[in-house]
Amino acid sequence: MTAASAPPMIRVAGVDKFFGPLHVLKNVQLEVPKGQVVVVLGPSGSGKSTLCRTINRLEPIDSGVIEVDGQPLPAEGKELARLRADVGMVFQSFNLFAHKTIVENVMLAPVKVRKTPAAEARKTAMELLERVGIANQAEKFPAQLSGGQQQRAAIARALAMKPKVMLFDEPTSALDPEMVQEVLDVMTGLAKDGMTMLVVTHEMGFARKAADRVIFMSDGEVVEDSTPEEFFSAPKSNRAKDFLGKILTH
């Protein structure tokens, strides 16, 4: 494949998903080109987290196509594991491995999946922990860290796999307010370094500052797809106006 015809990093086309009778994703279309930072906004229950989780197939879809870097998502198995190794994911609840130290958390996947020698993996892990500002916490267990530190460790863990794209599923929603900024700073840094990112969040400040594009979802549909300036100053749909009215007034 030549650079000129490079496929988008993420392509979501005609995706539908149901939870029982509930239609959570309705014919969703979305393309994220390489290097772009896309923020997904929307009220709770709008399907934005589900969309994020379908991209590495933590949630299987009922119909439609999802491609990562031009490759359709394979069915559960070794091939899917290989693809997931290239897609970093950060969860709302951190999900650090509770029985391993912070540095072991960051090393595990490179050693087991990429077969990196342990010494080299540890060196890279320490560099990443340095980058997210918690190198001094490397030998502690996750439960001994604050929420903000845990989430930064989780970002380092995802980065250790040198992913092509990073998915963030409400990374700051479980944090105490004073810890939100330290995580957003790390994410902003990543965005500046050219990482392709899909970020589901409620942080409007981050959307304004770091996003190239804002997707607004409501009731399982992509309602708006525009630049942050456009979205925040002149939303087109009533649903977006209503949503912004609710969050910007308090």
Binding site: R84, F91, N95, A158
Partner: peptide
């Protein structure tokens, strides 16, 4: 074991057996 532990393992590209054995 919280389901998030398995999800994080899968998201990192660990196979089912690796997830079970290591996490």
């Amino acid at each position: 074991v919280p389901v998030g532990q398995a999800e994080a393992s899968r998201a990192l590209g660990l196979t089912f057996v690796q997830m079970l054995g290591n996490v």
